[in-house]
């Protein structure tokens, strides 16, 4: 039963795919083909990211994470969170387990939020595509406005949840 619940969305989507394929073949083909293309993309960068997260978990001691991006890391911690996230690859939800692993190791809550925000909005491969299609002024302006917004979100969320620590996240599950 638990497995069924976990796969609920996938089962629903697969049913829609089959229905489309049956009644609206053209749309069905587009839906299945887009999903397959995207799946291929995902499978390409998921293995290295998950392996790196696993290695981070067993090798990097808590003190190192705490010292660099922990509650007392200040502006340096913010800068580091942004820097690491810009080098990210893949959609935001691949970043969830990475941020969760960092939080577990003592990363400050604001920094984890900043990490996620940067991952979502200014990772370098995506930025290069944006510049190509939208032009440099559009991309740079968006970048310049987004970074302060992302940093602000980090601190605001910390205030709302009432703690710099992971416990704030766990308590509100």
């Amino acid at each position: 039963m638990k497995t069924v619940k976990k796969y609920a969305l996938f089962i629903l989507v697969a049913a829609v795919d089959i229905f489309l394929r049956w009644h609206y073949p053209a749309k069905g083909v587009v839906a299945i083909k887009s999903s397959m293309d995207y799946l291929e993309e995902m499978l390409l960068f998921i293995p290295p990211i998950f392996v790196l997260v696993g290695l981070l978990d067993v090798w990097v001691p808590r003190q190192i994470v705490e010292r660099n991006v922990g509650p007392e890391s200040g502006a340096r911690g913010v800068a580091l969170s942004i820097l690491v996230a810009t080098a990210a690859a893949g959609p935001l939800y691949v970043g969830f387990p990475v941020a969760a692993a960092l939080l577990k190791k003592g990363c400050r809550l604001a920094n984890a939020v900043i990490f996620l925000g940067t991952w979502a909005t200014v990772k370098i491969p995506m930025l290069m595509m944006e510049i190509k299609f939208m032009g440099l002024p559009f991309s740079l302006l968006r970048l310049a406005l987004t970074l302060p917004a992302v940093i602000g979100t980090g601190y605001l969320l910390e205030m709302i949840l009432g703690s710099k620590r992971t416990e704030a996240v766990k308590e509100h599950r």
Binding site: A8, L9, F10, D17, G28, S34, Y38
Partner: peptide, 29 residues
């Protein structure tokens, strides 16, 4: 241990990921 962890978190995320990827296809269609 690290590889086992990587594999487990992959398995954990797989159902939601497949759902999301399927949903992207349906939305695009």
């Amino acid at each position: 241990k690290a590889l086992k962890m990587a594999w487990n978190s992959f398995l954990n995320m797989l159902p939601a990921m497949l759902g999301i990827i399927g949903l992207i296809g349906v939305i695009l269609a």
